[in-house]
């Protein structure tokens, strides 16, 4: 299943149009993400990130619903089958 987890933009660290980047927080982890393709995104917005690029902005309500669904699914996955190998 493909997956895009929403993260919240904490700060915009580079405003150059082509190299626009910022710190995006996913739970407890902050990551540097390219924001050039979502020029409309500002600090505080939620974005979907794919291989290091924010590809769309979503509103806070949507983001929270998505995160809640993912959490629920993570739990459900455990009862499907045992892990096929080492987990890290």
């Amino acid at each position: 299943m493909c997956l895009g987890i929403p993260g919240r933009i904490e700060s915009i660290d580079n405003e150059d149009a082509l190299a626009r980047s910022g710190t995006v927080r996913f739970g407890g982890v902050g990551k540097t993400v390219n924001l050039a393709y979502v020029p409309e995104a500002e600090a505080g917005d939620y974005v979907i990130v794919h291989v290091g690029f924010a590809i769309s902005v979503i509103d806070a309500e949507e983001a929270e619903k998505t995160l809640a669904m993912i959490e629920e699914m993570e739990g459900l996955a455990d009862l499907e089958e045992a892990s096929p190998g080492e987990s890290s």
């Binding site: 299943m1 895009g4 929403p6 979907i48 629920e72 455990d78 009862l79």
Partner: peptide, 26 residues
């Protein structure tokens, strides 16, 4: 990501276009 199929059971089919697009934001 696993668990999606179990997650969907018992829900109205009409919700699927929204649920699947939300989960697969890419």
């Amino acid at each position: 990501l696993r668990g999606f199929e179990i997650f969907s059971l018992g829900r109205p089919a009409e919700d699927m276009p929204q649920i699947t697009s939300r989960i697969c934001g890419v």
